[in-house]
Design a protein around this nucleic acid. Structure first.
Length: 596
RNA sequence: GGCGAGGUAGCUCAAUGGUGGAGCAGGGGACUCAUAAGCCCUUGGAUGUGGGUUCAAAUCCCACCCUCGCCA
């Protein structure tokens, strides 16, 4: 039976460049998991896109003297470039600023409205007369009405730590232009989470055996301590998804409500592009389909409480509104393997202080697989981790190059040199040869176990451990000595080692797709292991948007042990990885904190 | 303030009540196919602090300290 796996990666927000913390937090683990599942023969749909709406983008656009549309497109283009260079194999990386996403988001809104999970309420909110717009709480500051300190934000006073009601702030100023705003009444739609609370709790409890404790406990703990309250889902803005209700023309959907819908709308768009408009049901309605949401810990409530709440509230009504032929409840998240954060040389990553390593900048000086390797072995799966340049150097030189790259290189060059580029005939294998091959073959179980549980760093460690086994095997069999006295014994050892690295290439390929692909060609592979990444421009009523897609039609990689046969022609080998000079540590540290 | 996660060897992390381990770094050795890589041996711990429960605690309970996230 075909298994359908939805790999949902967080949607990068279009007002900042992507740094290594973003990558290791969600985009990279999503890709590793997607590649692994494709190798298993499962129908993977890895989706995401640029989160392109919201007040911060309109404010940033004003500041930069451009429009929100242009600003979003600029960041979106950068995201596409980075994801191609890092090999992030999105089946569809799109955007929230598409006709399709508007249509699906409005259908979700209408379904929730129809099912009685939305209500309206009037609020008082600060309005900037100089800019003719309402100011979100984070864009006003003033004097704290509790402790009297200046510089309190609309939602919180840093001086006394109190949570504030923004309309009670004194001496209020706009943080955008310093003008004095006035209070005006505005009406908004609210998502009635209190009505959904019971079902959300049930949903979480059904998953409590396998979810990560931080994700589960935070969500359930919060709900046990405080009943869920309604949350506003509209804003006074003109940039975003319009409200599908008459008389609400000057409001837009709140981004947190609308961006998560992207997981669903992107599945719809993907299948529409591929000529199968009903295909998205395979991931969203089919029994046994599973969805994995790869996000950072800051996003846990949206994915473990609010998005499931939206899906529960929508029920089967969405199908009616979209005119689908298949009907059913939408699939709730199977797992939300949220990661903690990655810091930079002991301090928090900060864009404004240029304290971080930015993806595109990194890839202008280094290769993608060493980055993928370091970010995986150091992935913040259970707690915050730290990017340290000397650790990066060490992991690259002493682990990736020394253990794995050197193993592949020593075996391939020896084989190429002594058997004229042909896989030698081993004759009958000894017990030791069989034992090594069995150990490596068992890796397809042991690495898979960790992968299935989304323990990616453990999975990679297990694969690397097997590379160490092969190095030890070579030390015992010493084909460089045997070749002088017993050519058949040397052939046996080299054949066995070639077969082992042929398997290891697959076990490591979700983590190291570029170098596994190269090794695959060195070993004589003709069909690529993985598919290609393609960028296309799509047109709709909102204009053009570029999408990144994955074309797996030529992919031949399978999650199974090597079938390498004697006589197979090899290609001339070359090192898979570069050893880095220790001077990069000081060089890179010197760039931190400096502009440009 | 409320809800959580984390604090274990120099570094990065395992270990869910039963003698605290691994990788790397550090020290020693034999080898030489390989990017001087690989292999063997090895030094190294008041498990954040203070109490408690237990025959037995890194692990369970209480308090406190520090870091991070969400509620905001």
């Amino acid at each position: 039976m075909t298994e359908y796996i939805l790999v949902a990666a967080a949607w990068p927000y279009a007002n900042a460049e992507i740094h290594v913390g973003n990558l290791t937090g969600s985009y990279l683990p999503a890709d590793i998991f997607a590649r692994y599942n494709r190798l298993r023969g499962r129908k993977v749909l890895m989706v995401s896109g640029t989160d392109s709406h919201g007040t911060p983008i309109t404010v940033a656009a004003d500041k930069a003297g451009t429009t929100p549309l242009e600003l979003y497109k600029r960041y979106h283009a950068g995201f596409l470039e980075l994801f191609q260079k890092l090999g992030l194999s999105y089946d569809l990386f799109t955007s929230t600023h598409t006709e399709n996403h508007f249509r699906v988001s409005q259908a979700i809104f209408s379904a929730l409205l129809k099912n009685g999970f939305l209500y309206t309420e009037s609020q008082q909110q600060w309005y900037s007369t100089s800019q003719n717009r309402f100011l979100p709480d984070r864009y006003v500051e003033g004097t704290c009405y509790i402790c009297g300190a200046d510089g309190a934000r609309g939602d919180q006073c840093d001086a006394c730590g109190s949570v504030l009601e923004s309309q009670l702030l004194l001496n209020v100023k706009s943080k955008i232009d310093g003008s004095t705003p006035e209070l005006r009444t505005t009406e908004h739609y609210f998502l009635d989470l209190s009505k959904l609370q019971r079902q959300i709790v049930d949903f979480l409890k059904q998953r409590q055996d396998y979810w990560r404790p931080n994700v589960l406990r935070q969500s359930l703990g919060q709900m046990e301590a405080d009943a869920l309250r309604g949350r506003p889902i509209t804003r006074d803005l003109d940039w975003g998804v319009p409200i599908p209700v008459d008389g609400w023309d000057n409001k837009r959907m709140y981004v947190w409500f609308e961006a998560v819908i992207g997981y669903l709308s992107a599945a719809v768009e993907y299948n529409a592009i591929h000529g199968d408009p009903e295909g998205w049901h395979n991931w969203w309605h089919r029994n046994g389909s599973r969805s994995y949401y790869f996000i950072g810990k800051d996003n846990i409530p949206f994915h473990a409480i609010i998005w499931p709440g939206e899906l529960i509230g929508v029920g089967e009504t969405l199908d009616e509104l979209l005119g689908s032929q298949t009907k059913g409840k939408l699939a709730l998240p199977y797992d939300v393997p949220a990661n903690e954060f990655m810091n930079m040389e002991g301090k928090k990553i900060s864009g404004s202080r240029n304290w971080g390593v930015w993806g595109l900048d990194f890839l202008s000086r280094y290769d993608p697989d060493p980055l993928r390797y370091y970010l995986t072995v150091n992935m913040p799966e259970s707690k915050d981790t730290d990017w340290d340049w000397s650790d990066f150097l060490r992991r690259n030189n002493d682990e990736l190059v020394a253990t794995w790259g050197n193993l592949a290189n020593r075996v391939l060059s020896f084989a190429y040199k002594h058997w004229e580029g042909i896989v030698p005939d081993p004759g009958e294998l000894t017990a030791a040869d069989q034992a090594l091959l069995t150990a490596v073959e068992n890796g397809f179980e042991s690495v898979a176990r960790e992968m299935e549980a989304v323990h990616l760093r453990a999975a990679l460690a297990e694969a690397m451990r097997l590379a160490g086994e092969v190095n030890r095997y070579l030390d015992v069999t010493a084909p460089w000595s045997a070749i002088k006295t017993d050519r058949q014994a040397a052939a046996r050892a080299i054949f066995t080692a070639l077969k082992a690295i042929d398997s290891l290439k697959i076990l490591l390929s979700p983590f190291l797709p570029f170098t596994s692909e190269r090794l695959h060609t060195f070993l004589g592979g003709k069909q690529p292991l993985f598919g290609r990444q393609v960028v296309e421009n799509r047109s709709d009523a909102l204009g053009e948007h570029a999408v990144l897609m994955y074309d797996g039609s030529q992919a031949s990689g399978k999650w199974e042990p090597s079938r390498l046969e004697p006589g197979q022609r090899l290609e001339p080998p070359a090192p898979l990885f570069k050893k880095l000079d220790p001077s990069i540590v000081e060089f890179e540290r010197g760039r931190l904190g400096n502009q440009g």
